[in-house]
Amino acid sequence: MNLRFSERTSGIKASEIRELLKLTERPDIISFAGGLPAPELFPIEQMAEVSVKVLKEDGRAALQYSTTEGYVPLREIIARQRMPKAGVSATIDNIMITHGSQQGLEFSAKIFIDKGDIIICESPSYLGALNAFKAYQPKFIEIPMDDNGMIVDELEKALEAHPEAKMIYTIPDFQNPSGKTMSVERRKRVAQLAKIYGIPVIEDCPYGELIFEGEVYPSIKSFDTEGYVVYLGTFSKTFCPGLRVGWVCADPEILQKYVIVKQGADLQCSSMAQRETAMFMQQYDLDEHIAKIKTIYKIRRDIMLQSIKDYFPSEVKYTCPKGGLFTWVELRKDLNAAQLLEEALKEKVAFVPGGSFFPNGGNENHFRLNYSNMNEQLIVEGIKRLGKVLRNYY
C-alpha cells in the first residue's frame, strides 16, 4: 500500500519491551525481560468474589458509561489511602483515573510538548515513557544519575542553559531501569527548581510502595507548594496489572487538561474495573497484599543478586536496588548487549538490552534484569546461563 502516514507516527518504533514480552509466551525461555508482577500472587479468589458482588450490587452502573474523571469512591480511596503514603494531601478534585500510568505519560506529553520542545529526564530512563514522548517529536536532555538518583546539580545546570525546557520527567523510586532511588534532599530540590523555573515535573511512581528495606520516601509532589508536580500512580505493580487502573494526581487547573485530553482519547476507563478495584480495597486490606508481594520480591531480588555475584564475571557492574522490580547491569564499553541477547536466547534466557533506555542513544553496554516474575529456582538457572554467555567475553 502507498499510504501517507503522519510525520509523527512515521518515526514511532515498536516497543522493544513489548516485542520481547512475546518471548515470555515460549515455555522454554527463562525471561528476565518484562516488568511483570508475579501472577501467582494475584488475589484471584478475592477478585472472583469482588466481581460477582459488583455485578450483583451495582451491575447496571458497572456496565454503563461513566464520567471521564473516574468512579468517585475509587478516587476517594486513592486520595484518602494511597496519596498519604507518598506524603501528599489530596481530594478527589486532584485525582483522575487513567488506563495505567502509561496513559498518564502519553497524556503528559500531549498536554505539554510541541514539536522540538525539550524534555529533561534521567539517563537512563523508562523506555515506555520515552516511546510515548517521542510521538510528539521532542528533544531530550539527559541528566546523569549516581547512587542517589538524578544528579540535581546537573539538572539545575540544564535548566540554566535551557530555560525554555517544557517538562522534567523522573522516576524517583527504584527507577526503571536502574533500580536507583532519589534521595529526599534531591526530591526537595527538584520541587524547588520546578517552582523557580516554572516547569512541570512528571513524577512517575509505579514502584514507590514496593520497598524492601527502610521507610517509603516522601514523593517530590509532597514538597510541591505551587502545583508544578504531576504525580502518576498505578495499581499495576501492587495489585492487578490487567485491570489497567492508574491515576493522575495534580493541581485542579492542570488536571482539567488531562480530563479534556482523556475525553478525546477514550472517554473513560472501564466502569467495571474501577468498581472492582474500589470494592477490593473496601473488602480487603491492600497494604496486607502489598506486604506479601514485597516479601516474595525481596527473596527473589536477594537470590538474583547472589546469583550474579556467583556466576557473572567479577568485572561486571550491577545495581543493588532496595525495592522495585529491576537491577541494571553494566558491561565493558566495547560490548553490545543487543548482540549478547542473540547468544543468550540460544541458551534460552532473555533480558532487555539497555541502549533503548537512553533517549539520545548510545550506551549499548547495559541491560536490565527483572526479578519479580520468575521463581527462585529459575532465577538461579537463568543467571547461570547468562553468566555462561558473559564469560565468553571476559
Results as ranks from 00 to 15, higher is better:
340 L>C: 03
240 C>M: 13
153 D>M: 03
310 D>Q: 15
23 L>K: 06
264 G>W: 02
54 V>I: 11
129 A>H: 02
268 Q>K: 09
21 L>S: 09
57 E>P: 02
182 M>I: 15
155 L>E: 03
70 G>F: 03
169 Y>H: 08
229 V>M: 04
183 S>Y: 00
264 G>I: 05
292 K>I: 07
322 K>C: 11
29 I>C: 09
338 A>M: 10
91 T>G: 14
392 N>L: 10
7 E>K: 12
203 E>W: 05
360 N>S: 07
307 S>V: 00
115 K>V: 09
369 L>E: 04
73 P>S: 06
313 P>Y: 06
176 N>Y: 14
175 Q>A: 15
126 Y>P: 03
139 K>A: 08
316 V>C: 06
315 E>K: 13
101 S>F: 11
114 D>R: 12
128 G>Y: 03
216 V>N: 10
177 P>I: 07
281 M>A: 09
387 G>F: 07
230 V>S: 01
155 L>F: 00
329 V>F: 00
153 D>C: 00
305 L>K: 07
204 D>V: 08
352 V>I: 14
22 K>I: 09
336 N>Q: 11
109 A>I: 06
247 W>M: 13
316 V>Y: 01
168 I>Y: 01
300 R>K: 14
41 L>H: 14
191 A>H: 02
66 S>G: 15
252 P>G: 04
39 P>E: 12
8 R>T: 09
61 A>G: 12
364 E>W: 04
291 A>Y: 07
198 G>V: 01
89 S>D: 15
127 L>W: 01
8 R>E: 15
